[in-house]
Structures are given as structure tokens and as C-alpha cells.
Simulated scan of single mutants.
Amino acid sequence: MENLHIVFWLLKDVSWCMVWKPLGISMIFPTLAIAAVIAWRTRHLKSELAHNLAIVLWISANSYWMISEFFHFDEVRVAGLITGKHLALIPFALGLLVLAYHYLFQQPREATTQPEQAATP
């Protein structure tokens, strides 16, 4: 499933690069769906879950950005200096926050609660 996910992701990004709107847009759902399934399947491993949630948010941001360029609202001002494509910063930032929480709070807490392994002779 992870390998198929990469194929869909690459097809989406190549379509974006080549401005193949129908293929690019149609690749959003399978790419995002498989990323969500992978995150769900790894939910019991906190580190994997954090990274896979960040990937889901990254693909969401990336897909929104692609759509904003395809439909030419990427440069449309939304508020002040903020344009349509700048709204992709929201899921990008959420992904960074998930990882920051993991590395700053969750991982150090896990390291201190791990029982020390006995040295083997």
C-alpha cells in the first residue's frame, strides 16, 4: 500500500508540473485516502502516527496549492498580502505542529518512561 501511495503521489505532482488538471485532481483522493489509511494503521505507534499525520497534512496542503494554481486563484489576494496559495500554509503549519509536539513533548516523555533494559553479560 505504501508503494502504491508513492505512485499516486508522483502522478499527482507530475500532473501538477505538466498542468494536466484532470489527472492531477483525480490523484488527490487516492493519494490522500491511502495516506489516511496508513496513518490509521500506525495509530498505535506514536512516532509513526505523528509522521503519517504530518504526511496527510502535507498532501492536503500540496493538493490545495495545486488546485489554487490550476484554477488561477493562487495569486488572488484574500486578505492583505495573503493570497490563495498562502492558505496552503495552514495544513503545512499543522503538520509542523504535529511533529513539533512529537519531538518536543511526546518523544522525550517516552524516553523517560521507558524501563531501562538490563545489561546482558
Rank of each mutant, 00 (worst) to 15 (best):
E75R: 11
D13F: 00
K12C: 08
R41Y: 09
G80C: 07
R77C: 08
L57R: 03
L87V: 14
V78F: 07
A79D: 10
A54M: 02
E110D: 13
E116Q: 15
A111W: 05
Q106L: 14
V14H: 06
T42W: 05
K21Q: 11
A79P: 00
R41D: 10
E2Q: 13
F8P: 00
W16S: 11
H44E: 12
M18W: 13
L87M: 10
V37D: 04
N52H: 09
F73P: 05
L49N: 02
R109H: 12
F70I: 06
V7D: 13
G24Y: 08
A118R: 11
G95Q: 04
E69L: 09
W58K: 04
L89W: 14
L81D: 11
R43C: 06
I34C: 07
I82G: 06
I67G: 00
V14L: 15
I6P: 05
L96C: 14
T83Y: 03
A39D: 00
I82T: 15
C17S: 15
L99H: 02
F71V: 12
L89H: 14
I38Y: 05
W9H: 11
M66T: 05
K46H: 12
H102K: 08
I55H: 02
T120W: 14
P121K: 07
V76M: 04
E69F: 07
I34V: 13
T113K: 13
L4H: 09
V7Y: 10
A61D: 01
Y103Q: 11
I6W: 13
V19C: 06
R43D: 08
R77D: 10
P22D: 11
P121H: 03
W20F: 04
A33E: 04
I82N: 09
T83W: 01
I90M: 08
G24I: 00
P108N: 12
A61E: 03
V19H: 09
A33K: 03
E110H: 08
I25T: 07
A119P: 01
T42K: 07
G84V: 09
D74Q: 12
A61Y: 00
S60L: 13
K12N: 09
N52T: 05
S68F: 04
N62F: 06
W65R: 06
V19F: 10
Y101Q: 10
T31Q: 03
S60N: 03
T120L: 12
A100D: 06
M27C: 15
E75K: 14
M18T: 11
E48N: 09
L96R: 10
L57V: 02
T83A: 03
G80T: 13
V78I: 12
S15A: 15
V7P: 03
L45R: 14
A54W: 01
T42S: 13
T42E: 12
S60W: 01
L89M: 10
Q106S: 15
L49D: 01
I55D: 00
E116H: 10
L96I: 04
T112W: 06
Q107C: 07
M1T: 09
W9S: 14
V14P: 05
V37T: 07
V56N: 00
W65D: 02
L23S: 12
